[in-house]
Computed example of a mutant assay.
Amino acid sequence: MRRGSGRQGHALGERASYAPACQAADQRRPPKRTESLSLTELRERWRTSAIRAFGACTDYRLAERPRAAAAAGSARVRPLADVVLAAVDTVAVVYVMRCAFARHHLLAEARRHLSYALRGRPHQPGLDQRIVQAAVDDRTRPVGRGRRMTADLRALYRAASRTRPCCAR
């Protein structure tokens, strides 16, 4: 039998030789660790390895560059909360989740919207209430006799068509 040939005496094809090659690679590979490390432990190991390889000064300078760049970027870009856009987004999300909703559903979604848009930065007191009020006044209509409401789709589409250009025309 020739070297690299199969049991039948002919050379293995590309597909057939793939499985034995994977098997050989697995046999030569060192065994994996069974314990998992936390992110803190991994970072400490990486930092120790970088200090060993490049020195403490280089490690410190390399870590300082991204911090400075992030601080400069966040100083230039101040997050804004557009009440009208937030109201449209809030009503759209709540409407998708539930057809008829109450004011407290809008309030919860407005707060989620602010936490995402402002990324945890403080905002003006009552901004969430202003978003809900704009949503109730301009983007919803009452349903039934209770305090339930639903999205006013004409108002939502009108607002969306003003903010985004339509390519379908």
Rank of each mutant, 00 (worst) to 15 (best):
M1Q: 11
M1Y: 12
R2T: 11
R2E: 14
R2W: 14
R3V: 08
G4K: 03
G4D: 02
S5E: 12
G9A: 00
H10V: 09
A11I: 12
A11Q: 15
L12R: 15
G13H: 11
S17C: 10
P20N: 07
A25R: 10
D26I: 03
R28N: 07
K32A: 08
R33M: 02
T34H: 12
T34G: 12
T40M: 14
E41L: 09
L42F: 13
R43K: 14
R45S: 12
W46C: 15
W46R: 15
T48F: 12
T48K: 15
S49P: 03
S49E: 15
A50E: 14
I51N: 05
I51M: 11
R52V: 08
R52K: 14
F54T: 05
A56S: 12
D59Y: 14
Y60V: 05
Y60P: 06
Y60I: 03
L62K: 09
E64P: 02
A70P: 04
A71H: 09
G73R: 07
R78Q: 02
P79T: 04
P79E: 03
P79Y: 07
A81P: 00
V83P: 01
V84C: 03
A86T: 01
A87V: 00
V88G: 05
V88A: 08
T90G: 06
T90A: 08
A92K: 10
V93I: 14
V93R: 13
V93P: 08
V94R: 02
V96D: 14
M97Q: 15
C99N: 14
C99I: 11
F101E: 05
A102T: 10
H105Y: 08
H105K: 08
L106D: 07
L106K: 06
L107R: 11
A110I: 01
R112V: 01
H113S: 02
L118K: 00
L118Q: 03
R119I: 00
R119N: 06
G120E: 04
H123F: 00
P125Q: 06
D128T: 01
I131H: 00
Q133E: 08
A135W: 01
A135S: 04
V136H: 02
V136Q: 02
D137Y: 02
D137A: 00
R141A: 01
V143D: 13
G144D: 04
R145P: 12
R145I: 03
G146C: 07
R148V: 03
T150W: 04
D152W: 11
D152G: 06
L153G: 10
R154L: 10
A155P: 01
A155Q: 07
L156A: 07
L156G: 04
R158C: 05
R158Y: 09
A160N: 11
C167L: 15
C167G: 13
A168I: 12
A168Q: 15
R169T: 12
